[in-house]
Design a protein around this nucleic acid. Sequence first.
RNA 1: GCCAGCGUAGUUCAACGGCAGAACGGAGGACUCAUAAGCCUUUAAUAGAGGUUCAACUCCUCUCGCUGGCACCA
Length: 523
Amino acid sequence: MSKFYITTPIFYVNAPPHLGHAYADIIADIIARYHRLRGDETFFLTGTDEHGAKVARAAEKAGVEIPKFVESVRENFRKLASVLNISNDDFIFTADEERHFPGAIKLWKKLEEAGDIYKGVYEGMYCVGHEAFITEKDLEDGKCPDHNEAPQIIKEENYFFRLSKYTEPLKKAVEFGELAILPKKRAHELSSLLEEGLRDISFSRPSKDISWGIPVPGDQTQTMYVWCDALANYISALGYGREDESKFQKFWPADVHLVGKDILRFHTAFWPAMLLSAGLPLPKTILVHGLVRVGGRKMSKTLGNVVDPFEIVKNYGADAFRYYLSREVGLFEDGEFTEEKFAAAYEGNLVKGVGNYVRRVSTMIESYFAGSLGEIGEERVAAVPLRKGSLDFLNIEKKSDSEIEFFSIPYFVNEILWKKYVEAFASYEVNRAADIAFGFLKELDSYVDDYKPFKLIETDKEKAEAVLWSLSYGALALAKMLYPFMPATSEEILKIYGVESFDQNSWKTFKVSKHAQLFPKKE
RNA sequence: GCCAGCGUAGUUCAACGGCAGAACGGAGGACUCAUAAGCCUUUAAUAGAGGUUCAACUCCUCUCGCUGGCACCA
């Protein structure tokens, strides 16, 4: 047993939650739940990023005071997590003066002590309409699209962070595997950035322009720019800079920062450089996921293809949504969400798959054995092994033709299947882990047909019992593997088979109860 | 423009240089415990042109097509 600390990015509150936020929440939750299942002491953090000019502008647009505005959006993100059954241990928000400010301020001071903060001149494009700096990417045809005006080039004095100093140290950290970036291609992207050399970054803004933020320590005329503010959430939430830093001592460094590819640079260059400067350990893994597209396009309001996660959950339930995003969408590549694909996956794998299986087995136990199966000796279980070819879906190569390939279900689960599952999670191949679970489900369905317990019951009741016992064990093993992905369903299966825990050793006797369909058919 | 990656069955994805696999879809079959669910069989593919090799999806060159990254935007 060890500690495990995982984070999502903190979500920017200038707009309500959408599919992308749901995706990050779900993936992180799956990994967190897997680690809890294994007995790791797990800390899972998510939260919101609430400062900056964009938020101030959004509040103004909504005609609401900034603090009220951010609070309402924040609550939406909280609600999203709750609706999705996200098991986060904490929720940090950057406007929290008690919990977040001290960490950001302490971090700033550390960087300053290291001599990495200096006053410099920032030159940027200033949009008069926005009353703020905007970037190249905000422009359309050289004009600010919101105000249809070309920006002015303005110089102002603010603080800089000596990022350039950390180009070489970062190269080394990546090279020596101190900082792992997954998948590999993202590590390559960082390498090419490092090859070009990092430039120092602007670290503050005059508070007359942006007062909504954290004041720079020792200089009230400046407000922290996003980096030292937002990124610090990963440690401020653990108590860094506050009186009690015990959680920080215990959980830092993060085992995984889950991030989208769009914020790769900040998490693989800026943030680690800041940590190096502050003399803090680096996160172990930056796990970079792709984007979830909708109908082949990036989701956007103008295209009108915004998917509302609340709607989906309302119609299909959180587990179905979690299932789709974690199995049918590739973690490392851009994925796609469409109503059709989602409905097909729901129907094919949940209705006709998990739901049907759980019920077909429990029904047989109910009608043939009055709902309960007693303990069965190993011998009887071994006498009804899986058919030949049960290894195929795991891509395990047979060493020889004569090699024994007839496994009892418990043996197969514990000696082979679970190990493969653990292996997949160890490399954060979440999709593969789900594939393993669903491949096993297919084996179980074949197993029913191989032994035909519904026939066997007439000729050999003892054997039928062993078969159904094995099938129940299989259902529970399936439930265990599905737990990170579909926690509610998984726990429901345990209940249906009358067991209390995910510990295989406790699966000795089963008592099934009548139950509704796990996944009702739609339409 | 520069850098990286990709192109495999109708679709979505696999395959240390050694018989190209799976899922979904399509076609057929046997069954009936289950949500007309499930099972079995079957169908079909390496973008193109060269090269290296006994052997290339895999390595090299070129062509065509696609995607991503190229800095202060969470």
